[in-house]
C-alpha cells in the first residue's frame, strides 16, 4: 500500500497575539518565531504510520508539502517514520488558496501513480478552513472520509474509519483509493526516535514544479485563487468589570438579571 500524507508548515499557533503584526493581507510574526508543522498534519502522519505498522512490511509513506517552508514539515514527518518526501515548489504556487493547493497536491498524487490512500489533517491550524482534503478528493474523484478518530486497513483494498460526530462516533468502511482527514481524537503524534531523525536529515527530498505536475500557472497560486481576502484584523479582547453591590441575595439576583440581559443565560 502506498500512503500519502499531506503536511503544511504554518505560523506557530502558540504565538501570543501580541507577537505578530498585520501588514496588508499578511501576518508578520516577530523575529525568532519559527513556523511549525500544523498539529493536525502531524496527527495525519501518525494515522498513516499506524496503518503501515499494522500491516505486513512493504507499505510506503510519502509526505507531500507545498511551498518553500514545507521542507521542514517534510523532514519532520520523515523523522516520524515516513519513507519519502516530495516538495511542491514553484513561484507559481505562491499565495494560493485551498483550491490551488488541492489542485497541486492532487496532481502530485496522480504523478506518484500508485497511491492507495491520502491522509490529511482535518484542517490546517492557521486558517482553519478544512478545505484541502475535500478538494483533493474532488479533484481525484475519490471517496473521502472526514474527521477520523481511527483509521485501519482491513484489506489491501478496504479501510475501516471511525469518525467523530457531534454526539458520538460513526464507523464506516471505504474502498481504496480514498482520502481520509483525521482529527485530534486520533491521539498524540509520536516523538521521533533519534536514529530516524538523523536518517531523515540525510534523506533527499524531491522537488516538483508546476510544470513537472503539468499545471498551468494560471490555475494555481495567486492567479488561480478563487477566494478573496476582504479584511485581516487582529482579534481584540476587551474586558469591562462591573461591581455588583448589595447583599448576597441582591448581588445574585442582579447577576442573573445581567446575564439574562446579555443573553448568556
Amino acid at each position: 500500500m502506498h500512503i500519502v500524507v499531506c503536511a503544511k508548515q504554518i505560523l506557530d499557533p502558540e504565538t501570543p497575539a501580541s507577537a505578530f503584526r498585520i501588514e496588508g493581507d499578511r501576518v508578520v510574526p516577530a523575529p525568532g518565531i519559527a513556523p511549525v508543522l500544523s498539529q493536525f498534519d502531524a496527527i495525519a502522519a501518525e494515522a498513516a504510520l499506524r496503518v503501515k505498522e499494522a500491516r505486513p512490511v512493504g507499505d510506503r509513506i510519502t509526505v507531500l508539502s507545498l511551498g518553500e517552508s514545507g521542507a521542514a514539515a517534510i523532514k519532520q514527518v520523515l523523522a516520524m517514520g515516513a519513507d519519502e518526501g516530495v516538495l511542491l515548489q514553484d513561484a507559481a504556487f505562491e499565495d494560493g488558496d485551498s483550491h490551488g493547493t488541492a489542485l497541486a497536491l492532487a496532481a502530485a498524487i496522480r504523478k506518484l501513480g500508485d497511491v492507495d490512500l491520502v491522509v490529511c489533517g482535518r484542517q490546517a491550524a492557521d486558517w482553519d478552513q478544512g478545505q484541502v482534503g475535500l478538494l483533493i478528493a474532488e479533484s481525484l474523484d475519490w471517496p473521502i472520509v472526514t474527521v477520523a478518530q481511527s483509521v485501519e486497513a482491513i484489506s489491501d483494498a478496504d479501510l475501516r474509519v471511525r469518525r467523530v460526530l457531534d454526539d458520538g462516533f460513526e464507523t464506516v468502511e471505504v474502498g481504496l483509493p480514498a482520502v481520509v482527514t483525521v482529527s485530534n481524537e486520533l491521539g498524540a503524534p509520536r516523538y521521533p526516535r533519534l536514529p530516524q531523525l538523523m536518517a531523515a536529515a540525510k534523506k533527499s527530498v524531491a522537488a516538483w514544479s508546476a510544470a513537472d505536475l503539468g499545471l498551468a500557472t494560471g490555475d494555481v497560486g495567486a492567479a488561480g485563487a478563487r477566494l478573496r481576502l476582504a479584511r485581516l484584523a487582529r482579534p481584540t479582547h476587551e474586558s469591562q468589570v462591573e461591581m455588583l453591590t448589595g447583599t448576597a441575595e441582591e448581588q445574585a439576583a442582579a447577576l442573573v438579571a445581567r446575564l439574562r440581559a446579555d443573553g448568556v443565560l
Binding site: D12, E14, P16, S18, A19, G32, L37
Partner: peptide, 15 residues
C-alpha cells in the same frame, strides 16, 4: 516546544 519554539512552555501568552 523546545525544539520548535526555543522554550519549554506551551500556550504562553507572554513574550
Amino acid at each position: 516546544n523546545l525544539e520548535s519554539r526555543g522554550h519549554p512552555w506551551r500556550g504562553t501568552t507572554l513574550e
